[in-house]
């Protein structure tokens, strides 16, 4: 018991000391060109969802903001630091609300628990189109407990609901805990990076991937920006 406690204190100290010297990467994701116009989604088939949106929402595969910023881009450490095996104990959550996936893109660590809930008054089927991992397809009637799942291998998995074909999202299963999804201004932040040489990858579901190398030497903050080329169609 005592040894366990000592160990715990020791490791906490060790971790915090490494964090003290850790650097971080911040940046912004933008695009050039003209993105295709996002069409509003007609949810008339599912009135209980349609009435949750005062104005019709549009698809979320390309979400842009002011100053050509690009949302929903997953930026992660693809080489350099490998947290293989350090699976966070906390589950990531995925909700179905107003016939939309919240969040649209959900990164997670391999083998991390994934909790999917249904806040709608209608049944959804969750159908992640996994190719590397095991594919599954399950309905979730309203008011039923969350579905919990895990993915063992790295993969970008499109998620869809066949009952509401416009519902579309992504599970991004990574072998690292160093990831972020670009916010409404296109900004992202990867904190707590110990000194070292890293390759960062930015992934967008329609516009592909980009990589950048970055070296962290101490408790510094590096700036890395990504620019994607938009597709008109």
């Amino acid at each position: 018991m005592r040894t366990k406690k000592t160990l715990f204190v020791f490791s906490t100290l060790l971790m915090s000391s490494s964090l003290m010297f850790a650097g971080s990467v911040t940046g912004k994701v933008t695009y050039t060109g003209t993105p295709a116009k996002q069409k509003p989604i007609d949810m008339s088939k599912e009135p209980s969802c349609a009435k949750q949106h005062a104005t019709p929402i549009t698809g979320e595969n390309v979400v842009t903001g002011a100053n050509n910023s690009l949302e929903n881009v997953v930026v992660y450490v693809s080489a350099g630091a490998n947290d293989d095996g350090k699976v966070p104990s906390q589950a990531v959550t995925y909700d179905q609300k107003g016939c939309q996936y919240v969040p649209h893109v959900l990164p997670m660590h391999t083998n991390q628990e994934l909790k999917i809930s249904n806040s709608d008054q209608t049944s959804h089927n969750i159908h992640p189109l996994a190719k590397v991992n095991q594919e599954w397809n399950k309905s979730q009637p309203p008011g039923t407990p969350p579905i919990t799942q895990k993915y063992e291998k790295e993969e970008f998995i499109p998620v869809k609901c066949n009952i509401h074909p416009w519902m579309h999202g992504y599970f991004v299963v990574l072998k690292t805990n160093h990831y972020d999804v670009s916010k409404s201004g296109g900004e992202f932040k990867l904190p707590d990076l110990p000194p070292g040489k890293y390759t960062l990858t930015a992934w967008h579901e329609d516009y592909g991937t980009q990589t950048a190398d970055v070296t962290i030497t101490g408790a510094e903050s590096k700036d890395v920006n990504f620019t994607f080329k938009a597709k008109a169609y």
């Binding site: 295709a36 499109p158 869809k160 074909p165 416009w166 579901e205 008109a232 169609y233």
Partner: peptide, 13 residues
């Protein structure tokens, strides 16, 4: 591609 709302598989390009 239903995700991008190309329901019919049109090729406007």
């Amino acid at each position: 591609n239903e995700g991008t709302q190309n329901i019919f598989g049109l090729d406007p390009e």
